[in-house]
């Protein structure tokens, strides 16, 4: 965080240039990924499967969001990612494909996904609410 500029001092173009340069430079997460490492698309933690939700987290720090695909086919959740890079020494491509079978009590129309700034992809599906209700027995008087 830069100090406030004094109203008494002369502000020249160089100060404005440096302020813009250092103001809010943040690289996206895939710029900081370790491209020497071919450990990618791991599960982060365990898959959560309890009575309220089904949740899975993936490390997608090598992939841009536009290079990721999530498809839901019935109960089959498919996550795919492709990344290609060209450098002075050659060519690099990595890809992953993951299929997760959602449990039967998952609420399929409510599946959501979110990606964090550290390259963590989270896909969550709430569980269906119990919709059974007891039906009272009405007595009918016989003639």
């Amino acid at each position: 965080m830069l100090m406030l500029r004094s109203p008494y001092s002369d502000s020249n173009a160089l100060d404005h240039f440096l302020d813009e340069l250092t103001g809010s430079v943040q690289f996206p997460y895939w710029r900081n990924a370790d491209h020497n490492s071919f450990n990618f698309s791991d599960n982060i933690g365990e898959i959560v499967n309890d009575e309220s939700k089904f949740s899975v987290q993936l490390d997608v720090s090598h992939f841009k969001p536009e290079n990721l695909k999530i498809k839901l086919d019935g109960r089959e959740l498919k996550i795919e990612g492709i990344q290609e890079t060209k450098s002075e020494h050659g060519y690099l491509k990595r890809s992953f494909s993951k299929m997760i079978l959602l449990p039967e009590d998952a609420d399929l129309p409510s599946v959501k996904s979110a990606i964090s700034n550290e390259g963590k992809l989270q896909i969550e599906a709430p569980k269906k609410t119990n919709s059974s209700r007891s039906i009272p027995i009405n007595f009918v008087a016989k003639h």
Partner: peptide, 14 residues
């Protein structure tokens, strides 16, 4: 137990 996972990489160096 929940499905399958497949990953691949290809590195070509001149």
């Amino acid at each position: 137990e929940h499905g399958y996972s497949k990953k691949s990489f290809s590195r070509v160096i001149l």
